[in-house]
Amino acid sequence: MYRPFPPFGSEFMKEFQQFREQLNELLKNVASGDVHLASDVMYPAVDVIEQDQQYVYVVELPGVKKEDVKLMVKDNSLVLEGERKEPEMGQDVQKIRGEIAYGKFQRTLPLPENADLDKIRAEYKNGVLLVHIDKKEETKPRLIDVQVQ
């Protein structure tokens, strides 16, 4: 059945305004964790921090086993791959709420130019992976003693 497009009158604008409000509300709720979007995709949050001597990459990987994480250096990037596996609960167990996303994840993070790729150390604790990368020894300006006669 043909329905004419509603005129851009007050009624239409009101509906549009309501939709906008609902969308804003949803986005706010997602940002505060009030609503968890059902997702099969895990996207670990990362901080990259520059210190005097090194760079530190902090990756949140709660519930990921150490052996399920792979860390590589490729094309001057730090590549992180892995999988968060759903814990096996056995028979007679029913999942009645599922907000945690399980599955494979991958992140590629650029490395700074002066990162010393031979000096990478990684540690994993409390569901957080910490990757330390030293800075290359820069050619420090040398002081030359000039003998003043």
Binding site: G33, V93, Q94, K95, I96, R97, N126
Partner: peptide, 26 residues
């Protein structure tokens, strides 16, 4: 600090419940 509600899985077993909460670096 902003309060954040951690993502939660809940399992029901014949004799009880198990909750898993995603709370890294607490």
């Amino acid at each position: 600090k902003i309060t954040f509600r951690p993502a939660t899985d809940i399992y029901e077993m014949p004799d009880g419940f198990k909750l898993l909460l995603e709370m890294p670096s607490v």
